[in-house]
């Protein structure tokens, strides 16, 4: 049977924490519950599922790419136009280090930003089930449950104090 998506909107964080406990208690796995909030809460405040991420790999890969490009740029230009200037030998390491360093850091930073977007699964084409009040201080619980569980989830959220429960149209 198909899954149904629900968005319960709450005013108070405590209601959300309670609702999350109830929902998990009713047998909905934590992976199928998500939270939308207008600002970050301490990690695990709602007992939410914490998916894995590999953000730390991105800067390393980016740094490697940046370093290689830097090496290509500095070494390549000197080989392509071999001219000793100011008594500095061709392919001398100290000045090349500077450009390679900058490129390494640039690669790492660009890759980190891309990594943040990728791991956050952004950009998204459409917002889907969402409510504008979330950026005004409301907190939303997104339930992705099979049809038969969805009604129970809606009841649980209402009981915990949800002001409104929206359905995916």
């Amino acid at each position: 049977m198909a899954n149904r998506k629900l968005l319960g909107l709450f005013q108070e964080p405590q209601q959300v924490a309670d609702a999350m406990n109830e929902l998990k208690g009713s047998g909905i796995p934590a992976e199928d519950l998500d939270i939308y909030s207008g600002s970050p809460f301490p990690e695990g405040a709602f007992g939410e599922h914490e998916p894995h991420h590999r953000l730390y790999m991105f800067p390393l890969v980016g740094a490697l790419i940046g370093f290689s490009l830097g090496l290509l740029y500095t070494a390549g230009t000197q080989i392509a136009y071999p001219l000793v200037t100011g008594g500095k030998p061709l392919l001398s390491i100290p000045p090349m280090t500077i450009i390679m360093y900058e490129n390494t850091m640039l690669g790492a930073i660009i890759a980190t930003v891309l990594g943040v977007l990728f791991e956050s699964r952004l950009p998204k084409r459409s917002l889907g089930l969402y409510d504008e009040r979330i950026t005004e201080g409301y907190i939303g619980i997104v339930v992705d449950a099979p049809e038969e569980k969805a009604d129970e989830a809606e009841k649980l959220m209402k009981a915990a104090g949800a002001e409104e429960v929206k359905h995916e149209s």
């Binding site: 405590q14 959300v16 924490a17 999350m20 301490p42 695990g44 405040a45 709602f46 007992g47």
Partner: peptide, 9 residues
């Protein structure tokens, strides 16, 4: 040490 919603802080 205090409770903060579902965790300790």
């Amino acid at each position: 040490i205090r409770r903060y919603l579902n965790r300790q802080v």
